[in-house]
């Protein structure tokens, strides 16, 4: 009885993807669309920006997210787990535009952060925080932490806490317990979380536009330029395929490292 599902996936996922790749190779300059894309310094910069900022977001989100996930795993008091889950899920449910607008207000030249830093005497003049790569990484990390938590959490729940007690009981230091007992156990969750956060991050559009401005374009920004401002669909298709290939490679590598199950578990 999977037939309708297969059909739906064929029509709604496989066919559009196939068409995208096909169009990128046949419309406009044909395969030359890719040459065109790589020749453009705007697209090259966008690819670099996307990869670098997404990497930063991934490191931050996964570090913070897996610590949160582990804390959730260990927390026993009902009230504590409730607060932690709320902290994870509220930003998850909040609209992306609302989150970004909040950050835009906080980071503005006359916003709360600059006021606070000036009050503390750390800076004389307000510094530019908004419309920088820093703002983009901060805003995206805030959005991605819940994904990191949810991706790492399933693996964490399967860890037998007694193993850690046993290791320490047998004289292992805290650090040693962490690196030789806990780490190998939660590694699949961490890798899954890393892959998922990175793959989602490189497709971001709203946050780089609202918090990063024109100077820190993501690939999605340039694709949107090409579609809605310049009506250059063939090059937009080529850039989309490039983005897709990067995302698939990352997920593929992760799958090879820890297996499909861990990634699937992370995706819920």
């Amino acid at each position: 009885m999977a037939a309708p599902l297969v059909l739906a996936i064929l029509f709604l996922v496989i066919y559009p993807l196939f068409k995208l790749v096909y169009d990128s190779l046949t419309q406009g300059d044909g395969p030359g669309n890719y040459v065109e894309a790589f020749k453009s310094s705007a697209i090259r910069k966008a690819i670099l920006m996307t990869l670098a900022q997404s990497a930063a977001v991934t490191v931050l989100s996964v570090t913070l997210g897996s610590s949160l996930a582990w804390t959730l795993r260990r927390a026993t008091r009902r009230s504590v787990t409730a607060v932690l889950w709320a902290a994870v899920l509220l930003p998850f449910w909040m609209g992306l535009v609302v989150k970004n607008y909040a950050f835009a207000l906080l980071l503005a030249r006359e916003g709360a952060v600059n006021h606070f830093l000036q009050k503390l005497g750390l800076i004389d003049q307000p510094v530019q925080l908004l419309y920088t790569a820093f703002a983009v990484v901060l805003g995206m990390t805030y959005t991605m932490i819940p994904y990191a938590v949810l991706a790492a959490y399933p693996t964490m729940t399967m860890v037998d806490v007694e193993l850690l007690n046993a290791a320490q009981g047998m004289g292992a230091s805290k650090r040693k317990t962490f690196s030789t007992v806990l780490m190998p156990l939660i590694r699949p969750g961490i890798v899954a979380s890393t892959a998922i956060v990175f793959a989602i991050s490189i497709g971001f559009y709203v946050t780089p536009v609202l918090l990063g401005g024109a100077q820190t374009p993501f690939i999605a920004t340039v694709i949107s330029d090409d579609i809605f401002t310049f009506f250059n669909y063939p090059r937009a298709a080529a850039s989309s395929v490039i983005l897709l290939v990067i995302a698939i490679s990352v997920l593929g590598l992760a799958m090879k490292a820890v297996g499909l199950k861990a990634i699937r578990g992370g995706l819920g």
Binding site: S40, S41, A42, R44, K45, A46, A214, P217, T221, V222, D225, T229, F230, N232
Partner: peptide
Amino acid sequence: NQAEVNKRWQEFLRG
């Protein structure tokens, strides 16, 4: 001239 203008504009703005 939009093809050339747009291309150069994008390079100027994003590049």
